[in-house]
Nucleic acid binder design. Structure first.
Lengths: 215, 215
DNA sequence: ATAGATCATATTGTATACAAGATGTTTGAC
DNA sequence: GTCAAACATCTTGTATACAATATGATCTAT
């Protein structure tokens, strides 16, 4: 599996961008990266193409490729789209999720609850993600599921912040229960509505955070 | 603008895949393509990376990259997601679209009507796309707009088929008017509902077509 | 004759070499 | 002293050369 180093490099670079090692606007120097990864420029260039195609970086011909992290405005837009995507997932999952899926949902929710009681933020965070992923899968729409997973992944780093808000985790759990109830009742409209609000709150909390930073 | 041939090659290859010149599963031979485009393998490989990242092709290490066109199931899934995306756009645009946007919408609708009267399928098709694009823009959410445009583009080739259905264009116009009314009334729920159905019908018509082919 | 192994060939993946354009500096003229 | 032009340098983009692996054919042994 050490074959095709370019792919591994692309993956590593993505993580480096998300983790903030590379700042927004920073140029990704081909020769420096080649030295760092101990490869030639060729696999580096192919990896950079992947980043550009994924919207993580921007390429200016004859100038180079530059890190392109979303600004506050685009982040809010992404949160809003996530809310609508999750609503769509809830709508479809309401009538399609399997009994097994519902059980998994409840189990994931229980693990969320335990994580809260243990005050284990990281664990809560992981289980919360799984909870939503089960709903994506419950849509029985692989394409939608994939898109939802992509956006969830892109927002991961920024979602972490808003969980710090006082009482957010407890409130989140209440909303989770409402979501499960709506899905069990096969109430598509209700599932969509509750999920939309549940996710939209994240965006709003993030907005508050941004305002506090700037003010 | 002759600079960076790899990008232009990627664009051309995408069109060739969408137009059906390359069949599903077909291997994209680096050396052949290099000869055809009269370049070396390097820009071809960078172009192929773009296709792979965009989900148009699949790469198997040490084997090559293969065209990956969506099958019937994935196409249905994509139509369903498009319906949900459009619904989300309608919901948001209902309270955000500008007066100018509404005027553009009405104008585009008029041009659709004229295209029908002239029995100009191609023209109707183009104006219909614009109509929807105005709604995407009306969301005042650049990210959502971009995603909607992407999916609209991916489904373009397949949407063409279902317009052939008898009376579809006329019915489509009626739905367009309902959409405009909902947006004018700033009725988010109604806009979402009508748009979802409007687009979902396309998926169902496409489904009929597939069934006819296979039956 | 068939199954397996070995080898030839072809194709991908990477390195290096070369070409072309962008940036920044230096030099010269006013 | 300032502005502009020419030049040096650096970086990207492309071509070619080389390495490694997968595929297919041939040959041998049972």
């Amino acid at each position: 599996m050490d074959i095709r180093r370019a792919d591994k490099i692309a993956e590593t670079l993505e993580q480096l961008v998300f983790s903030g090692t590379f700042r927004d606007g920073e140029r990704l120097d081909e020769v420096k990266l080649a030295e760092q990864f101990s490869v030639s420029r060729t696999p580096i260039r192919e990896a950079l193409q992947v980043l550009v195609a994924g919207g993580i970086a921007e390429q200016i011909p004859r100038r180079g490729v530059f890190v392109r992290q979303p600004g506050p405005v685009q982040l809010m837009e992404m949160f809003e789209m996530m809310a609508e995507l999750e609503a769509a997932c809830g709508r479809l999952a309401a009538t399609r999720i399997s009994e097994e899926g519902l059980q998994q949902l409840i189990a994931a929710n229980d693990r969320c609850q335990k994580a809260i009681e243990a005050n284990d933020h990281a664990q809560y965070y992981a289980e919360n993600e799984k909870f939503h992923q089960i709903i994506y899968h419950g849509t029985a729409n692989g394409y939608l599921e994939k898109q939802a997973l992509r956006l969830q992944s892109k927002l991961r780093a920024y979602r972490k912040m808003q969980l710090r808000f006082r009482g957010r985790m407890v409130q989140s759990m209440t909303e989770h229960r409402e979501i499960v109830e709506a899905l069990q009742a096969e109430d598509a409209e209700q599932a969509a509505k509750v999920l939309r609000c549940h996710v939209a709150v994240q965006g709003e909390k993030f907005h508050q955070l941004m305002a506090n930073f700037n003010g």
